[in-house]
Amino acid sequence: MISTVAQPSRILIGAGARHKAGALVAEVGGRRPLVVTDSFLAGNGAADELVQTFADAGLSAAVWSGTVPDPTTDSLAAGLAAVTAHDADVLVGFGGGSPIDTAKALALLAVSGGAMAEYKAPRSNDGPALPIVAVPTTAGTGSEVTQFTVITDSRTDEKMLCIGPAFLPAAAIVDYELTLTMPARLTADTGIDALTHAIEAYVSRKANRFSDGMSLTAIRTIGSALRRVYADGSDRQAREAMMLAATQAGIAFSNSSVALVHGMSRPIGAHFHVAHGLANAMLLPAVTRYSVPAAEARYADCARALGCAAADDDDATAAQALVDELEALCNDLAVPTPRSYGIDERAWRQKIPTMVEQAIASGSPANNPRVPTPDDVAAIYSEIY
């Protein structure tokens, strides 16, 4: 089998790498970068620090801080105006997954035009688009190295998965020092998001030898670091480990795929405004339990990498250990159920048919080792509530 591997042409990794942002933008041909970020990073001085590196490199930079959590099609209009006003030739996505996903969408729309709904999966988007430099401030989404963006349709509340090389950053900066102030809840949610990426990339029907290696390495690292960094956010060694693992998991699923967890989590986020990583965490144990019979050996490999099964455990024992460990991890990291999160049961039940339809339509469930029927998806939504 021939596999095509795609990742940014340049990735700077390590403490202080953000100080090289100006030189990196110049390397990809940028002279007028627009920093796409949120109001928090614009207000705490972090965006100003980045802009100073551009000034030091002789570049003319501007900041647009209008990104919103779980970006919507409506939220892109002001961003497009900012791109035009600055005559930007490169977009710097600075923040968590939402600013980086927003930068990806703006990069395509600014050059190719049209509406975001025209670019949703299963269409593969080649561009043209502005180059993107991604600078993540959370350790989880992996968006800095992926060919995906997720934008919610403001009219229908559908979280649209958009795929293709047009969304792949030209370069990325992976500096764990940007994550040192993450609160425990965000640390947990983004950490489980990264773990979900790695597991799904490994068990996906589109997995390959390249993505397999990245997946297992990320799982192994997360198994040793996530509880540590949740308990002590100042643990620099664990922060560095999680940041690198999130990037590795991102490369893995970008070159394989995500599967049922992600297909089901996007509608939860769209309809109930649950953060993406947290929605994944709500689903991960139940979806894994459902999927294990179709790929017992693959899930067993994940268990051994995570450290919850021994090398000489048989596959059935190891795969069950993985399910048990994911349940324990979610308990240790205080992951709520939809009920304990505060979602009304009647509203949840009423939305299940729509969520099932949107989950299946995203295409991600078709990558799952056990491909679900609509009734299966509905049953899992009911189970996790």
Rank of each mutant, 00 (worst) to 15 (best):
D70I: 01
N280E: 06
D312G: 07
T149K: 01
M282H: 12
L244E: 11
V150E: 07
T179C: 14
Q7H: 08
S112M: 10
D175K: 04
G250F: 01
G142S: 07
R185Y: 13
G97W: 03
A249W: 02
R18I: 13
D193L: 11
L161M: 03
A82T: 00
V229A: 04
V92M: 04
G30I: 14
D232L: 06
P338T: 13
P336H: 02
D313P: 05
C302S: 11
V150C: 08
D175W: 11
A47E: 11
A188D: 15
Y202M: 11
A78Y: 00
A110P: 13
P33E: 15
G14S: 05
S211P: 06
K120H: 08
A316H: 02
D235N: 10
S60G: 15
Y202C: 14
G307S: 01
A286L: 03
G250D: 10
H197N: 11
L226S: 09
T196D: 08
D189E: 14
S75N: 03
A194M: 14
S9P: 02
D74Q: 01
S257N: 13
A110N: 06
A139R: 08
A170Y: 12
P8S: 06
P374S: 01
M243S: 15
Y202S: 12
P285N: 13
A139V: 04
A105H: 02
G342P: 04
R266Y: 10
D126T: 15
E345H: 10
L12F: 04
P267D: 10
G233I: 15
I384V: 15
D315T: 09
S340E: 15
A21W: 04
S124Q: 13
K20T: 14
L260C: 05
A318R: 03
L80I: 09
F54Y: 13
G97Y: 05
D313C: 04
A88H: 05
L216N: 04
A170I: 05
G14C: 03
P353N: 00
F210W: 07
I352K: 00
F210G: 02
F148R: 05
D38P: 04
M264P: 07
